[in-house]
Amino acid sequence: MKIGYYPGCSLHSTGIEYDLSTRKVCDVLGVELAEVSKWVCCGSSPAHQCDELMSIALPAKNMVLAQKDGLKEVCAPCASCYSRLKVAQERLKDPEVKKDVEHVLAAEVPEDMEILHILDVITEKVGLDAVADKVVQNLGGVKVACYYGCLMTRPPKVTGKRDFENPTDMESVMAALGAEPLDWNLKTFCCGASFALTKTDVVLELTKKILTDAEAVEADVIAVGCPLCHANLDGRQPQINEKFSTDFNIPIMYFTELMGLAFGVKPKELGLFKHLTEVDDFLKERALI
């Protein structure tokens, strides 16, 4: 199966381990990822906060590029990229918006492009049976709190998701790997992503709530599917501990990293040593590396 791949800026920098693990996992599952050539940034939060037209034109540019590559489906692992691509598709249904965007691009925007999150590719295109088939190292009941954040599911009008208040796709994948997905409250609560650099206090407050809830259900690890959530949950733990006198040291892993481990991919190839809250001790303790 060949599918377009839009990594986005984060997966080439702060979320490098998400890119590495996604590629490895898709390799094992027989999904060929074709990176959209010459892709540009989707504009992310700043674009939709300051320039409506460019916030649609930038994602649309990537759809045009994907079509040039002969792609009909594009998957984006970053929840923000995924959301911006989906929102652009939704807004482009308005003929006036479409006219303006096509003027900015000097090209026609493809209408039938299918935009998927990488989790959708795994659950819908590949299927859980195929995932379970590839497991060579059962995760041995590791307790996982699956964290979706905002944009993997919301708003449902855009994402088309049915279980947006209590999504369970990631839990199904974790169960297929032999892990124990936990029931917890804040799986779709916001981490404050777009304020990471501008209003860090908000991020620390929101991220603390998420970590507290995960700790309350005794999670061994929090699984995420967004590089911005990861950067906040993984990187801000020392600052949270300092500010709130807490003692968090919870491993935050991309769900693709956990899949890679279960598939027997070497830890280094998954980027497991690039985390800021180190995961080595936890994985050694559970005899997973």
């Binding site: 080439h12 702060t14 540009v40 992310s44 700043p46 906060q49 300051c50 501008t198």
Partner: peptide, 17 residues
Amino acid sequence: FNRIWMIAMKYIGRMYE
């Protein structure tokens, strides 16, 4: 923040953290 971001978009095309 938005202004800096959009300048990067315009002249680089991708984010430069």
